[in-house]
Computed example of a mutant assay.
Amino acid sequence: MNVAHFEGAGAPPRKRPWTAPGALVVRALGNAAAAAPVEGAMLRFGRGRPGDPGKPVDVTVGVDDTKVSRQHGLLVHRSGWWHLSNTGRLPIEVGNHVLQPNGDAVPLRAGVTSALISTADRRHLVELCVNGSEGASPAPAFGLHTAPGHVWRLDERERLVLAVLGQEYLRNNPRAQPLARHQAAAQLAELRPGEDWDVRKMDRVVEAVRLRLSGQGVFGLVQSDLPQPIGNLLSHNLLTELAVTTSSLTSADLMRLEGAD
């Protein structure tokens, strides 16, 4: 297996192949590992220890917490993407998605993705970094000023549609999903009976926002960003960007929605 192990939670040394585009670096509290983007390459994390028989891992997480499985997560490179699977007994929170045990694998975008394993009183963090087209993990930013949060501008109609579609995100549901399209269109028609809302009209508004944000650099909002099958990931990623990653949609939008006649 083409995996290199490193002591400490810092990034591996900046040398090939770990600076190559598409290479994977996985970091936890006590160690790190890296793998080149080769078809079929694998990297595992969990409570086990590298080199141990039985259920070895490449990155150890939750070493003193028996609720973390010895092999809790598996990363496999296939068809040009790193895919994360949950091989443990507890869910893994990946960004704003909950990956259930033995559920479908999640593809990772370029950049850093946080994976959390939550037990009774603790949350164990694993950082998954996929190098972008220029290679190399992000450089440390110790001395830089904290960047201000970004807010995307939405007009009144866009705000209404997206608040209806994303109301579970505004309620801070950790497993939030977009409201079913026919339900969202029906609610819009009820809230604004004089505006002739239907699924197609709603879809056009959502698509316009997706394309606008994609054109300004937000990843995961168009089909070419994601592997098949896509399902509702485009809407999920849009709502996550608006309501979780930024504060472009807030609880105030939900309050207006619930207070509307």
Rank of each mutant, 00 (worst) to 15 (best):
M1P: 13
V3C: 02
A4S: 13
E7K: 13
P13T: 05
P17W: 08
T19G: 00
P21Q: 03
A23T: 05
A28V: 00
L29K: 09
A32F: 01
A35E: 14
A36T: 04
P37T: 10
G40W: 08
F45C: 10
F45S: 00
G48C: 04
G48N: 05
V59S: 10
D65T: 03
V68L: 01
R70C: 01
H72M: 05
V76H: 06
R78C: 02
S85H: 14
I92G: 00
E93V: 06
N96C: 07
H97F: 13
Q100K: 10
A105P: 15
R109T: 11
V112T: 15
A120H: 13
R122T: 15
H124T: 02
V126G: 06
V130H: 11
G135E: 11
S137C: 11
G143T: 10
H145E: 13
V151L: 05
L160I: 10
V161Q: 08
A163S: 15
V164L: 08
N172K: 11
A180C: 03
H182Y: 13
Q183H: 15
A184Q: 11
A185N: 03
L188R: 09
A189F: 02
P193Q: 08
G194S: 06
D196R: 14
D198R: 10
M202D: 10
D203R: 14
R204C: 02
V206T: 12
R210K: 11
L221Y: 07
L221E: 05
V222M: 06
Q223F: 01
Q223T: 06
L226F: 00
P227H: 05
I230H: 02
G231T: 05
L234G: 14
L238Q: 14
E241R: 09
T246E: 12
S247Q: 15
S248H: 12
L249W: 07
L249E: 07
S251L: 13
D253S: 01
D253Q: 05
L257E: 15
L257I: 11
G259E: 15
A260K: 11
D261F: 07
